[in-house]
Amino acid sequence: MRETVLKVENVTMQFGGVIAVDNMNLVVKKGEIVSMIGPNGAGKTTAFNVITGVYPPTNGAVYFNGEKIVENHPQGKMKKLYKGENNGQYSHVLAPTPDRITKLGIARTFQNIRLFKSQTVFENILIAEHLRRTSNLFSATFHLNGAEEAQMRSEADELLHILELDDVRDEMATSLPYGKQRRVEVARALATKPSLLLLDEPAAGMNPQETDELTAFIGRIRDDFNLTIFMIEHHMDLVMEISDRIYVLDFGKTIAEGIPEEIQNNPRVIEAYLGGAVDE
């Protein structure tokens, strides 16, 4: 039995009167590649944002490596407005900022690529090394941390080498072709040395060839970096090929869960994707 890396427990996210994520429960185990699929507006990115601390859930908790990292319950105006389940089950508030969550070992990429646009590929990676600094403002300013600085640079270079991005090291990050930019974004996330990597639609806007390359790439980094990967994706080829398990979301609710074959034949999933009733 593999140990659980990420556990989302009874998470509900309600914006005003709209429930974006409704009582989500999911588990990601060590070394797995788990995908989350669902039509547009199903609440997939919202779930990611809850896990990474962009906003606290309205109700529910998130565990990482067995430790509770996020917890919340309806407060203030939400007390009256709350329409979800499990009200009253949680009483603590634990809402760390995204940088805290990254330090714990959860890294993410974004649906619309968010590279640091005025900087080169190398500098983009180097920024991720900042979170492991031991130098303070004074020693860093007066460059008394030479050894650490050198280590940061060599680690960034090493990462670029492993991910075969050496050739674009000094290019401006945003001048690269789309597929390469995705790779740089993944590389930047890896530079924070995560144990869990969240990919938000990594194949969005890619052509079939780039998608194939990405499929191989994701599989490879999982093995090379000893990662657990949780991703949102729309490209079914990619999802079916590399996922160990799949969660299907529709209107905030988890409607199906299982290995790719089960999902492909699940009538509720087909209904959600194609619409209308399914004739048996």
Partner: peptide
């Protein structure tokens, strides 16, 4: 500079 370029990404990179 990371904060200047993109706050959300900077925060996701572990910058407080």
């Amino acid at each position: 500079k990371a904060i200047r370029d993109d706050e959300i990404a900077a925060e996701a990179m572990g910058i407080n």
